[in-house]
Write a protein that binds this DNA or RNA. Structure first.
Length: 596
DNA sequence: GCCGTTTTCGGCCCGACTGTTTTCAGTCG
């Protein structure tokens, strides 16, 4: 089946289709256990669509590309094409007649599963959220079998927190909150080891809840759980058992789970609690096929039930004949197969970074003087060999963009400070604006005087951004594309862009692409980093600091690089400045070759 | 409904906690 009537480019189908498949999964969930595997399939398709890089219509152009997507088989593939052609899916329309729409929404609320919702619908004819709220208020639920007072309380809370429950927190905020709580847990009497697990350990860009895994003698568990749920930050206790407890924090409403295990289970528990869910499922399924059973207590021989590994993660991966898989890679993106073949990359580390490639001073919209910045970085990051000052160009009026004459003055100021420091520590850079037509807002003769030129899009998001960026890559006076996706996490989606074309052009012209480490940018995104380096693109990691405290964001940038499978040689600012100069010469050469 | 270096048919991760029950279903991660 081909595509006859593709909607015009730039329209977003992924989110719409993901929402439909999510609802279809909910429908089948409601319709009973006989559909449970179908539910898994639609859940899988929902996940795939949510994480897709390009619009689904790009893949739907050819049947093979569509079916290469994990979780998209024949039937769901046909439904995608049907949706792209007609805007509807017949099966879904029919399902909607069987399951009232208001019930699907109810199933998205914490504590509401299909059985609960079905009972409410069949016994007291609830069809949506409003009717449920009224039923609770009027006491209609009292005496209903299976609906005791605690269950009703939980339902009320779920309804109230519905919106907040969906909010995720920026990685940076979660790292700070998580570290604070971890320190408190480590101070509990009896704790032997404890660390953060979950998506926080994997350094995902946003975090849903915080997981802590800890080991202690079993006799101390009860005391430790009591201490944990009594933490002053705790607003409410969600669950409390022998081995685990969950609390919700004040203000942030973020959930923190603590899991206690024996020392001989610590590694398997850490593995389990770190996830991702998809990585765990794949690993467990694979182990099962080898005659093992993997759970949070260890790896066991399926026949004898004897524990074969479990104290450390290293031990488990070793038993499986795999390389150790760093948490940042555990996303089911091929890491298990590569670990088996011993082909995992040796990932870049924070300590490999030798300079910061983008920052702003009071000359534009930064908070500090150039000299203050330089002295601070020299002190706090003693292994840095250079920083690149990149104040804004004229178009960024709000950000106090500099005029050409200002930059000439700034050059002198930088020379003066470098002389005082006794080394060429501060490099002369600029974050130049890419205008609507892909031209830049500073003259070429000035741009050529900079040590490093980052070009960024700050406005005109609806223009043809692919063409704008391709044009910029072809310029000899531009070395890097800044925050290429233009997104602000939780606020603004990135603009549409043909990433393949950009990566190919960047690789061919020797133009670097930035990972901007601002907590709400993390742009280039991790999955795109992986594709970029596979195409041969050089990556830079910069904090884009506007204040001294922001230089610490470098660890976020490195986390994104690691999640994108970056080795040290994929990241330009793991090199000396001499090598950066060489990279720039390489670009001049590449452009000359292209002209011939 | 998807998927395959054990399978194109027969599987599909696995256990803890809660609430309301007298032995377990539902929900979650």
């Amino acid at each position: 089946m081909g595509l006859s009537n593709v909607k015009k480019a730039g329209e977003r189908h992924n989110a719409d289709l993901a929402a439909i498949f999510h609802q279809m999964a909910s429908c089948y969930r409601y319709l009973g256990a006989k559909h449970r595997f179908r539910v898994m399939a639609y859940d899988g398709a929902t996940r795939t669509l949510s994480n897709l890089k390009n619009d689904i219509s790009v893949y739907a152009k050819d049947e093979d590309a569509l079916h290469e997507l994990h979780g998209i088989g024949e039937s769901i593939g046909e439904k995608i094409v049907e949706y792209l052609n007609t805007g509807k899916i017949k099966t879904f329309e029919q399902l909607k007649k069987k399951v009232p729409q208001g019930l699907l929404e109810l199933m998205d609320i914490a504590g509401f599963g299909p059985a609960t919702v079905k009972a409410l619908h069949q016994k007291i004819h609830i069809n949506n959220r409003d009717e449920l709220i009224r039923a609770i208020e009027t006491g209609k639920l009292k005496g209903l079998r299976g609906f005791g007072p605690k269950k009703i309380d939980n339902m009320k809370r779920g309804l109230k927190l519905f919106k907040e429950a969906h909010a995720r927190m920026l990685l940076w905020d979660a790292m700070n909150i998580g570290e604070d709580i971890l320190q408190e847990v480590l101070a509990f009497p009896g704790i032997k080891k404890a660390e953060l697990a979950g998506s926080l350990r994997r350094k995902k860009e946003t975090i849903g809840d915080i997981d802590i895994i800890a080991t202690a003698d079993k006799k101390d568990w009860k005391k430790i759980v009591s201490k944990f749920i009594a933490l002053p930050q705790s607003e409410r206790i969600l669950a409390k058992g022998e081995t685990r407890a969950s609390i919700v924090l004040k203000k942030t409403n973020i959930q923190v789970d603590l899991r206690l295990v024996h020392e001989y289970e610590y590694g398997s528990a850490l593995l389990y609690f770190t996830g991702s869910k998809e990585h765990n499922i794949k690993l467990r399924t694979w182990a099962k096929g080898k005659g093992w059973k993997l759970n949070e207590y260890g790896v066991f021989d399926a026949e004898s039930d004897k524990q074969l590994a479990g104290a450390t993660e290293e031990e488990i991966y070793r038993l499986f004949g795999m390389q150790f898989i760093p948490p940042e890679l555990r996303e089911e993106r091929g890491e298990i197969e590569n670990a088996r073949k011993h082909l995992l990359p040796r990932l870049v580390n924070l300590k490999d970074i030798r300079g910061d490639m983008q920052m702003h001073s009071v000359w534009s919209d930064g908070a500090d003087e150039i000299e203050t910045i330089a002295r601070y970085v020299c002190k706090e990051f003693p292994h840095y060999e250079y920083i690149v000052l990149t104040d804004h160009s004229p178009s960024e009026r709000i950000a106090g963009g500099l005029q050409p004459a200002d930059f000439i003055k700034q050059f002198k100021e930088i020379d003066r400070i470098n002389k005082k420091l006794g080394k060429d520590f501060i490099r002369k850079g600029v974050e130049v604006d890419i205008l609507a037509d892909g031209s830049l807002d500073l003259p070429e003769d000035l741009l050529q005087q900079f040590d490093w030129v980052v070009a960024s899009i700050h406005s005109g998001f609806t223009k043809d951004n692919t063409q704008r960026l391709l044009k910029v890559c072809e310029r000899r006076d531009v070395h890097c594309i800044g925050h290429p996706g233009g997104r602000l996490i939780g606020k603004r989606e990135g603009y549409t862009l043909d990433w393949n074309k950009l990566f190919e052009k960047a690789a061919a012209t020797g133009t670097a692409i930035e990972i901007n480490a601002q907590p709400n940018r993390l742009d280039l995104r991790d999955d795109l980093v992986k594709e970029a380096i596979e195409k041969g693109v050089m990556i830079t990691i910069s904090t884009d600091s506007h204040a001294l405290s922001q230089f610490d964001f470098m660890q976020l940038g490195v986390a994104v690089a690691r999640r994108g499978w970056c080795k040290i040689e994929n990241v330009l600012n793991t090199c000396s400045w001499k090598a950066v100069e060489q990279f720039k010469r390489h670009k001049q050469h590449a452009l000359k070759q292209a002209v011939k």
